[in-house]
């Protein structure tokens, strides 16, 4: 084959793929989602070590046991464990770039939640800062973590590093 013929290959074809999926939230996530529609944050305890998983979930990943039993209600405030300032836009994120993604440890929870930080100067973002949730107006609440638009700074002294370091 001559070099010219070699170059004469079809380089791109387009095959649009659209597949629709119907997800089931599952039992424990359903309980969580129903609660957050009412503005309540629900976690659950691991039956082995009593640690509180938030959001509530089907099993303890560490012990592989189903998490059942009474839910634990948590407050909508916590500590910023770690964060990143993102300068790449994302359709799924309702904030303008640059925006701050955070891992927040809610008071009383033993697992971190990934969420967004708002209402805060970028220079002032730091680990250990205290945060509270900024909710959407009540009439817009759905079965979604997005009922919390973002977390924002709380006028409190920073949490002690030791209080959250094991969650980094």
């Amino acid at each position: 084959m001559s070099d010219e013929a070699k170059d004469d290959v079809v380089k791109v074809i387009r095959t649009p793929v659209q597949l629709d999926y119907n997800y089931s939230a599952g039992r424990s996530a359903s309980r969580f989602l129903r609660s957050i529609k009412e503005g309540k944050l629900i976690g659950q305890r691991c039956p082995v070590d009593g640690r509180v998983y938030f959001p509530s979930r089907g099993s303890c990943p560490q012990h592989g046991v189903p998490i059942e039993g009474e839910p634990v209600e948590l407050v909508d405030r916590g500590t910023l464990v770690t964060f990143s300032i993102v300068r790449i836009p994302a359709e799924s994120v309702p904030l303008e770039i640059p925006f701050v993604t955070i891992q927040v440890l809610l008071d009383g929870a033993d697992t971190i939640l990934m969420h967004l930080l708002g209402n805060c100067d970028l220079e002032k973002v730091h680990m250990g800062m205290r945060l509270k949730a900024r909710w959407k107006p009540k009439e817009e609440w759905e079965e979604s973590v997005a009922n919390i638009i973002y977390f924002e700074p709380l006028d409190e002294p920073d949490a002690d590093y030791d209080s959250y370091k094991e969650h980094i």
Partner: peptide, 19 residues
Amino acid sequence: REVNLNDTEIVIPVIHELK
């Protein structure tokens, strides 16, 4: 159609039963 469980929740009891 398992409407109540997500795919992880389908596996959990199976592994649990075996173990």
